[in-house]
Write a protein that binds this DNA or RNA. Structure first.
Lengths: 238, 238
DNA sequence: TCGCCCGATTTGTATAGACAAATATATTAT
DNA sequence: ATAATATATTTGTCTATACAAATCGGGCGA
């Protein structure tokens, strides 16, 4: 049922989200009451109520009967289920994302890599290493091998403006992914890149992505333990 | 706003969920129209609409304007950090699982805990600490707070024969869970329990579980980084 | 027979009003 | 001053109604 104008309850949601995202309403802030929003938007209370109810279900607001509606203290953590690129994740937190390409070349991979990508031994594969920053702080070191059959122009991309994940998804449907999460000690190279000490634990997210029956890419995403959390929500019936 | 009787829209949701879960309405089934549900439950259309809208948001129904409402084809993929108990996981690997109960008592929790469980301040909550072994090696330290309203007999259970997770699931439907994964340095207590050194990173899985609108349990699951990996598969569109 | 139009059905959004329940605030009594 | 009480505020649920938009089905005409 597309329409020329956005439904009223979505307009209210949009307004509220902007206030929260911009930081105008910090965590714990007491937002306008339903009655006030009714006056502001000239809509019925049911419409305002729906907007507030949905944002509450989404975890952005917390409502206390008799008291008021407040901005949720805990920001929603990143989705582990969804294959998101780190840039979107950071932007959703209202932070600035930037990245540096540390390596982008073709190389003859070892047996483990070619096997994983379903290629012949000694086949040439693409490799990229990209360091992602959140508000200027290193937040993820992305070490990635890519199947050239799937992305022949991979090396020609500018990965400071788009992420490998976003680029690969634009080429075709990525229909399956496998993740593994580990807590590890950083190697010397990782320590240097992420600017952390040797005793800081790291969260390593290992990801393999399929398109059809072939593996498209295999990535190791290393995060500093002190600056990153991986989150996921599941909802069932009610 | 607890009440003696379940809100009408939840009654409708419950009815629909039972039909779907029992298999009475298979995938793709055309469920009764809003008008029919209005007649069945003697409620207003807005109430029925809310129930259907929320189940659609939860991914259990698919609505087509002008056509009808259908049971979703794809079952919810609990693929990722599935709520498995560690015992099953270890057994699936063909290994021997054992466990030791290190603590099992009622205590007056701090504000953060009672808030999380939706209880009054200074309310008494149940707490358990259980150490799980795989082939005799410590593999998980489970520190858990439980809402006594949901599991009044929690303290009387024998958690060497059944896990807290399995017990809680037997009491009622756990319909929502939130996970967070971190890489952390072990505390002194954790080092001792898991028999690891101070420089060994640990994987901390933080889990909150809901039943209806109340949090049932909050658990911290700490694994030694060298002996544990968290795996997950996810298929679907992007 | 095939295609088109019109009406019936179904979902999507929106309103105004109502009462209940939980909380906060002000008032009163001790 | 403190405690108990009354009042106002705020959220939660529910109803009856209305119109819009999308789809489906049948009848009509070429």
């Amino acid at each position: 049922m597309p329409r020329d104008t956005l439904p009223l309850y979505l307009q209210v949601k949009q307004f509220l989200c902007e206030k929260i995202d911009s930081g105008a309403w910090p965590e714990g802030h007491h937002i306008p009451t339903e009655h006030e929003l009714v006056s502001m938007f000239k809509v019925s209370r049911m419409t305002v109520n729906r907007a507030l109810r949905e944002l509450t279900a989404a975890g952005r607001l917390r409502r206390v009967p008799g008291a008021g509606t407040f901005v949720t203290d805990a920001k929603p953590s990143s989705g582990l289920l969804e294959i998101r690129n780190i840039a979107d994740e950071i932007k959703d937190r209202g932070h600035v994302h930037s990245s540096e390409v540390r390596l982008l070349k073709a190389e003859t991979a070892n047996r483990a890599i070619t096997d994983a990508l379903g290629l012949d031994q000694d086949a040439v594969v693409f490799r990229s290493m990209i360091l992602h920053f959140e508000e200027g702080w290193p937040i993820q070191l992305e070490d990635r091998y890519v199947n050239p059959d799937f992305a022949p122009d991979y090396l020609a991309q500018d990965f400071t403006s788009t992420t490998p994940n976003a680029y690969l998804m634009s080429l075709g449907p990525l229909d399956r992914a496998e993740h593994r999460v580990e807590a590890i000690r950083p190697t010397a190279a990782v320590q240097r890149q992420l600017r952390i000490s040797a005793d800081e634990p790291c969260l390593l997210l290992h990801r393999r992505t399929w398109s059809g029956r072939h593996i498209v890419t295999r990535a190791w995403l290393t995060h500093p333990g002190s600056r990153y959390r991986l989150g996921a929500q599941f909802s069932g019936r009610h």
